[in-house]
Design a protein around this nucleic acid. Structure first.
Lengths: 143, 143
DNA sequence: TCTTGACCTCAAGTCGACTTGAAGTAGAAC
DNA sequence: GTTCTACTTCAAGTCGACTTGAGGTCAAGA
């Protein structure tokens, strides 16, 4: 009875209804039933959507996230997987920190062109020699 | 004379030749000529590729990066753009830090299921209320 | 001279996460 | 009872950054 309409869920979770349908199709969420055609959801779906969003920002794919939910719907997350992700994040945070500092330097650098700035060149050289991760898999960011 | 063959560049830069062709098509790099069919490159292309990789890990798109190169090939990077990216990175680093700590906690948490752990639930609630960025644009990560 | 193999071009395919469009339906307001 | 509107399904499209495949070419080694 306290079930939420898809529009309500979409609004509260801040995602379009199409995303909810898509997630349902992928088995990430489930609707409790229909009122007419319309999907109804248990309010708990909001927590679940938050968990999904969280997983996404941690760099998990939707498929990985789906695998984290046990058949009963309770999250059943492999602790080693979490540790591994935490370590990954650590490395990534360090990289981004270096990069941020370099960008700030380059932005403030008095050299007429960036290539004339030693710091900038050193950064590039470090990047060239693998000091900064080469682009590959993506992690979610901001809108 | 000291020009590099595409295979050499690919090997040294750690990217497949197809990527070099793709970048050339996009105007990100240029070959100095051909030996037979094969593209030859000035060794400076390696620095440029490093710069491209760097930009990618900072979250710039290839199109944005292309716009950073002046017609003469010298990088001409808008300092305000760099500052803005640095700020963006800052926020992102903070988010990832929170996330990492939460993951570590969840991994070590003695609660039988993650949903029974207060810290985990608080994290999810924070995520649900916008405390953690919703997935959107992606940033490069690791292979 | 012939073969080999790495390069070439161009078009099309891939991947993940959604979004969009067309055509249909049901509950609610008038 | 009719209309309105927000939902429904299903297929197809989008986006970015490449990769892959088919069919072709050319320099170098045997």
């Amino acid at each position: 009875m306290t079930d939420l309409d898809i529009a309500e869920v979409a609004h509260r979770a801040g995602v379009p209804a199409s995303t909810l349908r898509f997630y349902e199709e992928k088995g990430l969420i489930a609707s409790t039933g229909r009122r007419g055609l319309r999907r109804q959801y248990d309010p708990g779906v909001l927590q679940r959507l938050a968990l999904i969003a969280l997983g996404r920002t941690a760099g998990f794919s939707l498929d990985e996230i789906a695998r984290m939910f046990a058949p009963d719907g309770q999250p059943q997350i492999d602790r080693r997987m979490l540790s591994a992700k935490a370590d990954e994040l650590d490395g990534r945070i360090r990289e981004l920190g270096v990069l941020r500092d370099s960008l700030r330097h380059a932005a403030a650098c008095p050299a007429p062109s960036h290539m004339e700035c030693g710091t900038f060149r050193r950064l590039i050289d470090a990047a060239a020699s693998g000091g900064v991760a080469a682009p590959g898999r993506r992690l979610p960011g901001h809108r």
